[in-house]
Design a protein around this nucleic acid. Sequence first.
RNA 1: GGUGGCGUAGCCAAGUGGUAAGGCCAGAGUCUGCAAAACUCUUAUUCGUCGGUUCGAUUCCGACCGCCACCUCCA
Length: 476
Amino acid sequence: MKIYNSLSRQLEDFVPLNPEQVSIYSCGPTVYDYIHMGNARTALVTDIVRRYLVYRGYKVKLVQNLTDIDDKIINRAAELGVSAKQLAHQNGEAFFEDSQRLGIHCADVHPKATEHIPEMISLIQTLIDKGAAYVIDGSVYYRVNQFAEYGKLSGRKPEDLLAGARVEVDERKEDPRDFDMWKAAKPGEPAWESPWGKGRPGWHIECSAMAMKHLGETIDIHAGGEDLLFPHHENEIAQSELATGRTFARYWMHIAFLKIDGRRMGKSEHNFILLRDALDHYPTEVIRHFLISAHYRHPLDYNPESLAKSEGALRRLNNCLDALKKYEGGKDGVPSSNLDRETLPLQEAIQTMKSRFVEAMDTDFNTAQALGAIFTLVGEVNRSLATFDGAAAPVFARAYQVLTETCGVLGIYDMDAEDDNNVEQRDQLIALLLDVRQEARSRKDWDTSDKIRDRLKELNIEIQDTRDGATWKIIS
RNA sequence: GGUGGCGUAGCCAAGUGGUAAGGCCAGAGUCUGCAAAACUCUUAUUCGUCGGUUCGAUUCCGACCGCCACCUCCA
């Protein structure tokens, strides 16, 4: 299994530090607003990485933080006339709600910055003791020139960082590259006690402290949006590695931006689509399919056309799976050797699909390629479904199992879609109507027949007349 | 100015030093009382442009053109 490591800028074999448990830290959102589709992409990729590792037999511990104190939160709270704490809490809850609606499983730990102040203070103190930080007017700065490897993640040299930089240089800092780990409190701001006076943590220190607390000094995979590569992740490395003398994260994964109209979807651009709004318009699986239709390191453009394409693709997948479902768990009846020979191509297609899926996902989680494998099998199954009818049930059952298993890793098939108490009665009523309609049809009473079809359609139930009689499905 | 990335059919998107997965759309067909839906089939001699290396390049190298991102908060 290979992962592209941003640190080495190449594909590397994935070998977890502890074979018993893979540790993953994912940079979560700053909760001053609802999350948008770009945030969703990162969260979804992390979710699928985790699901796939589990599928491959690993145990995984995933930690995803929430930044619940920073300038944006303070400013937004002031605008709204609520406390920063309250605003962060509300948006934190909304974040969990939205994530869940996208089918993202909860992380094992969702640490919050404000609940780890002691750990951060301790880490900062360690760095001060090592001469890697200094205090000015109650704020603590990291001394970048103490860390020889600074810039190793982003490939930036000290001179690069100065020339043409758009940073407003704080004259008090020893070096323009130095960054704050602890911010002295301004009047009226939320603040915590510290050895350097009242204040609050800087952005980068929280991830260092929380990742190390929950996953140890060295973690396997650290993931986040590509915008975090510099300075956020670079600074996390500087803080953590200087403090512990150990490698902070072994594999760095950076998820490319979601774009809209060809430009980055971002909060500062005010061009974002909220995840919850998208979820109001499209099913979970459609949005997931869209977000994984391109490889995670490639930009993806959000637009209604692309979502419509995913809807079409999902329809194709669901039709196939629905047709296959009736063979689910079919007893392993031994097909006649004759049939066995005839279904050999399908049996091989199933095996091929599974190995192609694994190969694709093994190569840096290539979801686009994995989808290709899945849809290739869908075509094979559809052809076989027409050819073999029900006689090849065991093979169809196998196809169903493999397809649901792989689609389950990607989260693009909702097996329990209609798991509802009223379903049975509804089904019986519709069956009754179809019965009546069939009688009308045999009398060539097309008026009655069509009336039943049309009226059901008004109720979003669509009839399809097939060779084996009428079937129906719910449309939206 | 520095750093990184991208440019594959009408659209989206994989991929490989040996001749282009998959999806959407479109066209044709099957089915049907008519439909709808579904399914099947068809759709890039070609991978931004120009050079180079090679028996052979879309894939490697160079130049150029176009687009994007990071260097300030943003996943």
